[in-house]
Design a protein around this nucleic acid. Structure first.
Lengths: 229, 229
DNA sequence: TTTGCGATGATTGTTGACAATCTGTCGTAT
DNA sequence: ATACGACAGATTGTCAACAATCATCGCAAA
């Protein structure tokens, strides 16, 4: 977190965005405790407002509110992780399907430009930007598909996916490159809904399979939670 | 609202549930203003807690928070209404599909019993119960399908559907009876995922088609919003 | 040495009061 | 008679202090 105290009062929206980004982009690790007073100093805001923001973040699943204990960056269980991917497949398969029917030239441009930006970040080894853009690609699809409700939910799911990857990614696996995203765009441009759906399914399954979501790992983690901090 | 002041402090959860039910079950009409102090008296709670609850309800889309004006029961636009049904189809089709693969005897019992309860309420002309049970049926499916994320979202969508029906239902159309629900259960019991999906799609489309979501109606409503209270 | 217990400090939960903002009304000038 | 502007009431937004709760540490007893 590159936030400094003493800056002039930040609006609730800004505080929310700032924390959201910091968690979703893995600048704050899972399990980290967020103290209200600490945050109120950082953002020069009263505790009441911090509290509101925390409540919203909790509803997004990014942090977990423990009564009388405080707020912690969530540590999604493997069940929750699988559920997130199940929900993402459900939503995103439908969105690309719809997008194939409704995309226009402007939308195609935005998709192409975005994938190009991803490619640049990737070749520049700019990991932070790659993570951010990778998530933003999925959000762009949701935006173009014009379903506000599913787009809002997907925003949460994408950020939770970041958390999940921070916890369960196997060390030797890197982020998926922009190639699969490009393949999805190709399907959309070709207006091949069936294939677009299949490629999206494959893409999300691919990400999920890169994770280490085995049961024994769960036990180990839970034990660690019980014993450690 | 059959709430009384003077009762001992209600927990946030209770306040939320109480308001949620009241709106989702159409005891409070769209557009109704909810004053914080009024609510704090009703629930014997401080304004701060009421405020928190209102924020949560706003996030569910049940109420709309206007800065410096207060909270109003939402008046979904026709676009939002269609979006709600689009999201519901997306989610519920997938859930019944999954349920066909994972349902067990206990789950079947619960589904059967629920439909039976719906039938009783319907034949007794207990409209309020019928509305509540009709929504609860869909939530039961989500619960049995064991996707917490989609179940949570669906809960919001079902309540928003109630609001939408309160606004856009054509006068001569009644609530759909429990027959379609029963058909869905039959498909699930038969583990016919493809048919279950189709029947669910038909069911939701049926509800949507009963509504009056034409464009001219939109204009009239928007005009009313601009001119009136 | 280990275990149970009580004091202490830190952190969250709650409240009531105060400030800012908006709506509607009344008075005045044109 | 109408339009503009200031005033009053009501309502929301914000805050800082107080109360309740929890984790930690030290101490004594087995």
């Amino acid at each position: 977190m590159d936030m400094e105290a003493g800056t002039r009062p930040a609006t609730d929206q800004e505080i929310y965005q700032r924390l959201w980004s910091a968690i979703a982009e893995r600048q704050i690790g899972p399990g980290t405790r967020l103290k209200e007073e600490q945050l109120s100093e950082i953002f020069s805001a009263s505790r009441a407002r911090i509290r509101q923001v925390l409540q919203n973040l909790a509803r997004d699943g990014l942090i977990t509110l423990v009564p009388n204990r405080g707020a912690f960056v969530s540590q999604p269980s493997t069940e929750e992780a699988r559920d997130v991917f199940f929900a993402r497949r459900t939503i995103e398969e439908r969105l690309v399907e719809k997008l194939c029917a409704t995309i226009d030239a402007g939308g195609i441009d935005r998709l192409r430009n975005h994938v190009e930006a991803e490619r640049r970040a990737h070749s520049n080894r700019d990991i932070a930007a790659a993570i951010r853009l990778s998530g933003a690609f999925h959000l762009l699809i949701a935006e173009l598909a014009q379903s506000q409700i599913l787009a809002d939910l997907l925003r949460d799911l994408v950020s939770r996916t970041s958390l999940i990857m921070a916890m369960y990614r196997q060390k030797d696996v890197l982020n998926c490159g922009p190639d699969e995203h490009n393949a999805i765009v190709d399907c959309i441009v070709a207006r091949d809904a069936k294939k677009a759906l299949a490629v999206m399914h494959h893409h999300l399954a691919h990400i999920e399979n890169q994770l280490d979501l085995e049961a024994d790992r769960v036990a180990a983690r839970n034990l660690e939670d019980i014993l450690g901090a």
